[in-house]
Design a protein around this nucleic acid. Sequence first.
DNA 1: AAGCTCATTCGACATTACCGAATCATCGAG
DNA 2: CTCGATGATTCGGTAATGTCGAATGAGCTT
Lengths: 247, 247
Amino acid sequence: MIQSVDRAIRALGLLRSARGSHGLSLAQLAAGLELAPSTVHGIVKTLQAHGLVVQEPRSGHYRLGPELLKLGNVYLGTLELRSRSVTWSAELARRTGFAVRIGARTAGEVMIVHHEPRPDGSRQMAEAGLTLPLHATALGKAVLAFTGEEPGELPSMTADTVTERASLAEQLDQVRARALAAEQEEAVLGECGLAAPIADAESVVGAIGIVVPIAEWPVAESAIAAVREAARTISHELGATGWPAAR
Amino acid sequence: MIQSVDRAIRALGLLRSARGSHGLSLAQLAAGLELAPSTVHGIVKTLQAHGLVVQEPRSGHYRLGPELLKLGNVYLGTLELRSRSVTWSAELARRTGFAVRIGARTAGEVMIVHHEPRPDGSRQMAEAGLTLPLHATALGKAVLAFTGEEPGELPSMTADTVTERASLAEQLDQVRARALAAEQEEAVLGECGLAAPIADAESVVGAIGIVVPIAEWPVAESAIAAVREAARTISHELGATGWPAAR
DNA sequence: AAGCTCATTCGACATTACCGAATCATCGAG
DNA sequence: CTCGATGATTCGGTAATGTCGAATGAGCTT
């Protein structure tokens, strides 16, 4: 682990969590990293030269730069899971009438890599790049059930969030049995989810699911079948030999 | 400029331009950076520990990681230009019937920070994060005319791309006079654009415009007025005292 | 107009990252 | 199934590099 590179990335992380405020001053950055201001200065100037951070002309504060968006976008483009899923997510949205989300498995989270709005046009901005907790979302449970990784913590997000490992394990057993994960107001009040895992030739790499307002829950059997079918089809395209579990 | 941080960022850039192929091997990265493989190894392992790159389990190749998407997304969220513009871009799309783009000025380019699809639902994926050349797009010309920066090169993209500085300067004079930039098949065949600059209290920071298929060009006077009005309104919200030019 | 805060610059020190060689795993050929 | 080659990874010595503290200068407030 190279020290200066590590420090530079931690600086980016600090700028990320400082969202809302108008950037961070050099002194704040130095305090957060527990380094001398002059040390941090060299780091941010290097990042700035490449457009990863920008400096506000007036206050001198630093914030994240546009180059990061370009890099993030390329990451999206290289994701085979995403490119194979977009056409099917449109189909799923059409058949069910709900908004569709595709999530990719990342370290300890599920990241939304595609969002298909409801066909009726009710607009809601859920951008690609948002990450969801594994234990409190349908997409997350669909992934968690088949990867066997242990979530570190189970933070409570609403009154209905599952926070006990025992009951989560029980749920995951059902998910494995049905190849389908459900969630009712466990992450966002008024919002439910239904998702199925997507696998490639080796393991479960993500999930596809629908977002359902609580007023329209539970959904019809046909919608459940549609979610399963979309996940199965995409998995097949990604080279999965069996479904839901690989192998 | 810190050497190792600089090298790490150049490695990310290399991985970015290697799009299409399935990542880059350590040896390829080392060759591209003109460094010893072991040196590059330390760099990518540090990047990997933070999720900025991931390694494919099978081939050992490296590619960009999900953390970059998170960072890029936060950049979008901190952009005041974007948050002030989204509501007005929906309005503009409704009034004109065309897809709407919002571009932010970055170093030598214009970056799309928001895309509003056509109200009629014809779907086209122009993602946020794409960058457009300054000289061959309506958004770019709208920015270029008021920032006074000299574009380095004028690469030809279609038969109609303006590649001579003299004729470009002439066009920019008109843009300044009308506070409106137009483009006909100069970047993408079959596609025209119309855009107006957006300023904050100090300078022009971006532009808003519509994307028009060649078959529907030229657009009605009412659409032109709508683009201008949207740009003027957003500029006002951003604290611009005059329009189009700041000051 | 003066004092303050904060970003920035500079130089000396030693910590740190760099490189080359050795090791190990993986894949392909014989 | 064995052998060879390619390429990722590890390790240790060297010196180049980044780090820190103090000094400078700009901008803002009092």
